[in-house]
Design a protein around this nucleic acid. Structure first.
Lengths: 121, 121
DNA sequence: AACAATAATAGGAATGATTACTATTTATAG
DNA sequence: CTATAAATAGTAATCATTCCTATTATTGTT
């Protein structure tokens, strides 16, 4: 993978926001410094960055969001404001039981915890 | 909500399959008995059935699937064949800690457990 | 510095899932 | 039987994402 200014900017933007942005949001953001960048470039680079292990894709309902935090973690989703909050939950404890009951080897657990955040208590 | 033959058939189909079908699969299936049904009718009715509490929508990556099983449960997803297997996991134990650490009230937990099923061990 | 090879881009067209629109049909209360 | 409004079929529109292609830019080699 060789250098590109576009990819560098895209990476920078994802790594400098905690709001789990969509591809479209990243596109609008990167447009500020590279006005004629194309949406396809954003998608292509986000995919490449994911393959490179530099960002992680998370699915929020049926829309993809991107996360700079590639450590295993999950999300709290507020049903009022839609905000996603990072949370680390060790789910390893359930692996043996799933193996035993279903003969299913777990790779990872994607968890979305839906509820109400403190701003809307 | 008044009676419609189409909705009755759609409900019947979802309730008689364990394979967590997509809207398109339901459409192809219901076409067998109602050849000129439209895809829009399928989507509209699946949504109504969900509001009525008769089916549940689950998101598998970025595609919606429908589940007759409306009891709280989660899914194992095989990364080889894509099959979804129902599993009941009591996640209530983590609610108090999330409340304490994040002041976040949990409604429900959507969990997708990715790995390898027994057919591909 | 110039050159060649080819990865990456911009811009736009294409795709796939889903929703919206509208004239017509159908269920049902009176 | 009739009026009213809900539901439908068929189609157009939308939204997120991917694909295509001629052009541009990076990088290893002279």
């Amino acid at each position: 993978m060789r250098f590109s200014y576009q990819r560098q900017k895209i990476r920078e933007i994802v790594h400098n926001t905690n709001s789990h942005p969509t591809a479209d949001w990243v596109y609008l953001e990167v447009k500020k410094s590279i006005p004629n960048i194309s949406l396809g470039t954003v998608y292509r680079n986000l995919k490449q960055l994911e393959e490179f292990g530099d960002v992680k894709t998370i699915y929020d309902g049926n829309i993809a969001r991107y996360d700079w935090n590639t450590d295993p973690h999950n999300h709290l989703k507020c049903k009022n404001c839609g905000d996603l909050i990072d949370i680390v939950i060790s789910d390893k404890a359930m692996y043996p039981k799933i193996k035993k009951d279903f003969k299913f080897s777990v790779d990872r657990v994607e968890m979305l915890i839906i509820g109400t955040c403190k701003k809307h208590a």
